[in-house]
Design a protein around this nucleic acid. Structure first.
Lengths: 262, 262
DNA sequence: CGTTGCGTTGAGTACCATCAACTGGGGTGG
DNA sequence: CCACCCCAGTTGATGGTACTCAACGCAACG
């Protein structure tokens, strides 16, 4: 882990817009959000129909915050809010009584934390913050109301659910039928693709705040083995990584390992 | 595999209502369906609102049929129909170019084949018939229309999607964090629970038309290992099985192996 | 300066895959 | 009617991938 992605931090600063929010919190926190152009918020805010029945006071609420390693939601909890992750990373997971843990999916900035919550109050998994996070809550009923009248928002939300489904299926294939190398490479490439859609990748390098324990619990491996796999990737000149950033050096090589087409 | 569940076939005959349909095919094929009380069709047909805007001619269409081992849908295909499996079993799967195959889920009689198709035309997986099957197709747009006006149907459909989600999450946990024994036991118990909801379990015994190759592709194992696991279950007095039926002898023992609570 | 958490590395091992041979049943064709 | 094949399942031998257990370095932190 000696080699450092020296310039990465200057290139992208996903957190810096938060500094701006702090000072203007009485206005909409979404005002200066750089993700808005690339995620569902575009349809919620910018593209709202002219006759929007909801000047939606919920949109002017201050953001919720949570610190790294704290749970945002717990399995079985009931709630009538749908949250969107404005800043920071999180993950959905299930904790088994004997200590085993399976991470169901990683949530990156701009994602909806619980897209299926529009269908029901309860969720079957817990959500934990991976970094310090801020998120916006929307009232479930109000959202459902808007989905009923705003066709473009409804379509976008449908897309969200379908995309999530495909991600889960990809994950199932990884866990059921792919080797450790394939799983890890695939995870890296998938996260890169998702971050790219949000404008958070530059020069093949991006924020990657996953500890090896988190990677292990996502890919169904042990942390020790993840260390070996990532080590082999590094020695093969495929990637470079620090604690919080990752740069893909040889993307074709990495794809050869883990971007197996479905 | 010597021991036979001698009386099972007399106890339940899930296929026999089809014989009735054959002779009355000009009427609604759903007329005599025994599953209707237990699945989404209840809300589609029996519980239709008085002012149903749709005397839905689609409901009077003859059933589609497909023979065992043939694909019902292929990944990437576009279609504007949502299908409900009236009779027989099927499975959703992804075929990898190198021959590996992962089964995403098993579809039992009464299930919606593609619940998420209401959100979009395309699906990411293929569906294959496991036995001879018959299914009813509904027009996606018409269904969406009814969902918009019929609250109980909409709620039922939401439930469908949430339930499917939870099943998938359970599957992810199995593949990522559970041993072969646990996976197989869990699969058996999950299918039993789902069949029970449809009134298709009697005396702990139920139809089970999955070959060991199918079980292997579902659980991420090899057929040989599935054979060993099922063999050990049989020798331990947990289950009895024929090619198409399965009886749980010692449900507590089986639960101790694979019903680990989430 | 001890502690704690994370990553790395090594040695030994277990679980499951792979390869192979064999069985029995069902279908097919001579 | 029998020979044959094919498929599903079983069983054994062998091996590899990834796990387990353990020790250690290192940075952050109180």
């Amino acid at each position: 882990m000696g080699e450092i992605v020296a310039t990465a931090e200057e290139q992208i600063q996903p957190h810096n817009n938060l500094e701006a929010w702090k000072s203007t919190e009485k206005a909409s926190p979404c005002e200066q959000c750089k993700l808005r152009a690339f995620n569902i918020c575009h349809y919620l805010i910018d593209d709202a129909p002219a006759a929007a029945d909801t000047p939606d006071k919920s949109m002017w609420q201050p953001l919720e915050r949570q610190r790294a390693r704290r749970n945002i939601k717990s399995a079985g909890e009931r709630a009538n809010r749908v949250s969107i992750l404005c800043d920071g990373w999180a993950f959905r997971f299930v904790q088994l009584p004997d200590g085993r843990r399976q991470i169901l999916s990683i949530i990156v900035p701009g994602d909806v934390i619980t897209p299926t919550r529009i269908f029901g109050e309860q969720i079957a998994f817990s959500v934990q913050a991976l970094t310090d996070v801020r998120y916006q809550k929307y009232d479930r009923a109000a959202l459902k109301g808007r989905l009923a009248t705003d066709q473009r928002l409804a379509d976008a939300w449908s897309d969200l659910i379908l995309t999530e489904h495909q991600q889960i299926f990809g994950h199932l294939i990884d866990l059921g039928r792919r080797s450790a190398d394939e799983r890890v490479a695939h995870l890296v490439l998938e996260l890169k693709a998702r971050l790219k859609q949000r404008g958070l990748v530059s020069q093949q390098s991006f924020e990657f705040p996953l500890s090896q324990k988190i990677v292990a619990d996502t890919t169904g491996l042990t942390p020790e083995h993840v260390s070996r796999v990532l080590g082999s990737f590094r020695r093969a000149g495929l990637i470079e990584a620090t604690e919080t950033w990752l740069r893909i050096i040889n993307i074709d090589g990495l794809r050869r390992v883990g971007d197996l087409r479905i």
